[in-house]
Computed example of a mutant assay.
Amino acid sequence: MNKYIPMLCLAAVLMAGCSSNTPQQIAESGENSSPFPAVIEPHNPEQAEDSGDVVVLLGEMRNRDTWKNFMKNVKRHQPDQVRVTTYTIEGGPIIHELIYDGRVIQTTYDNSRDMYGSDETEKTNTCKGIGTTKDKPWRTFYILTGCEKENIFSIPSS
């Protein structure tokens, strides 16, 4: 009997080491691995749309159902994730990755592919939810709310 105890301990250690990471654990670990598909360069709107991104180009939203499902899951406190790629007037992609763990939204902002963007590494933030704001009486935008740092996420709701 005693000779089986070390084997059982070894098996338990191996099984614990093979467990998967949740999106929040990945975001907190600072690893380069991402729960999102790799960004295909030069990341034009068609490539972004094909890879499942919510694409915002000249005020038009593509893959709107993906965004709606993410919003529903946030309201239900169900973990989910979405990548939103917005394009500037000049055509530069700005990528927002949002990972919701059931409590908070971990966001990553990357504007390094935009010619007027920053050469800095990705910016991260933690927010409590999603809301709306009006720019003018006829334009409503989705924004992140309750953020630890300044919120830079905004996409049109229509």
Rank of each mutant, 00 (worst) to 15 (best):
1 M>K: 08
2 N>G: 12
4 Y>P: 05
5 I>A: 03
8 L>M: 14
10 L>R: 07
13 V>I: 13
18 C>V: 06
18 C>K: 11
19 S>Q: 14
19 S>G: 09
26 I>Y: 02
26 I>M: 08
26 I>G: 04
27 A>F: 10
29 S>I: 06
29 S>H: 02
31 E>H: 01
32 N>A: 15
33 S>Y: 13
33 S>T: 15
38 A>F: 03
38 A>V: 11
39 V>I: 14
40 I>S: 15
40 I>D: 14
46 E>M: 09
47 Q>R: 08
47 Q>E: 15
48 A>P: 07
49 E>W: 07
49 E>G: 02
54 V>F: 08
54 V>T: 07
55 V>N: 04
57 L>Y: 12
57 L>V: 13
58 L>K: 14
61 M>F: 03
62 R>Y: 12
63 N>L: 04
63 N>S: 12
64 R>D: 11
65 D>H: 03
66 T>G: 04
66 T>Q: 01
67 W>A: 06
67 W>G: 07
70 F>K: 06
70 F>A: 01
72 K>W: 02
72 K>C: 03
73 N>C: 01
73 N>S: 09
74 V>T: 13
74 V>S: 08
76 R>C: 03
76 R>M: 12
76 R>Y: 08
80 D>H: 05
84 V>N: 13
84 V>P: 07
85 T>W: 04
85 T>F: 06
85 T>M: 06
86 T>I: 12
92 G>A: 03
93 P>T: 09
95 I>C: 00
96 H>C: 00
98 L>M: 12
102 G>F: 07
106 Q>R: 13
106 Q>K: 06
107 T>V: 12
109 Y>Q: 00
111 N>F: 09
112 S>Y: 02
115 M>L: 03
115 M>G: 08
115 M>Y: 08
118 S>L: 00
119 D>Y: 07
119 D>S: 15
120 E>P: 02
122 E>W: 02
123 K>F: 00
123 K>S: 06
124 T>S: 14
125 N>D: 10
131 G>Y: 03
133 T>C: 02
134 K>D: 15
135 D>Q: 11
135 D>V: 13
138 W>D: 15
140 T>M: 11
143 I>M: 10
147 C>K: 05
148 E>K: 13
148 E>D: 15
151 N>Q: 12
152 I>E: 12
153 F>D: 07
154 S>N: 11
155 I>G: 01
155 I>E: 00
